[in-house]
Amino acid sequence: MIRFDRVYKRYPNGREALSSVSFDIGAGEMVFLTGRSGAGKSSVLRLITLLERPTRGLVNVLGHDTQRVSVSKVPSFRRQVGMVFQDHRLLAERSVFDNVALPLVVAHTPLRETDKRVRAALDQVGLLDRIQALPGELSVGEQQRIGIARAIAPRPALIVADEPTGNLDPQLSREILGLFCRLRDAGSTLVIASHDMALVNESGARQIHLDGGRVIS
């Protein structure tokens, strides 16, 4: 599903974020990227989602060598990857339905199918009753669950999450972890960057620990 082979990433300011990073993630796995701030977790996610290209090495995601994906093909590539962000990235002026429907709308999914999938995704995160609410009317935990619903609504093969519990209290964090576990059990592949070691250990999932841009374990 994902293969990093001796990947280097150096940013234009000269900072080397990743240095000879190699790992494989198989289909249906839930993997945590762990490490301190600046360890390179976000850079790995950015390379997976084609927000960045590697300076050197091979990044293969869903069978695509990301170095070879042309700029015009990036949107269709991203439609195969669901993304969850620490700050939710919801559109404040749009309803929950519109927010969750966005990836389906950009993929030109028929209206009836969009409606069906949005409801299914909201049902999965337990927020179907808030379908007409605006994000501002929801709690932080609910907003994060809407962010997850948006990521899973198009039924992507891969879900990546960058510090999805970073702004949540332990109770809400466990709820979100439970949600991710259910998605894994349903067959999704998840790559989650987190520095919340307690939560990561509680999940029992495989960890890729990064430090100074290198894979430590």
Partner: peptide
């Protein structure tokens, strides 16, 4: 700006 960025993140094409 934010809306455009999110749309691009979820796979919105330049034309969209």
């Amino acid at each position: 700006r934010q809306e455009i960025e999110i749309t691009q993140l979820v796979g919105g094409s330049a034309a969209f």
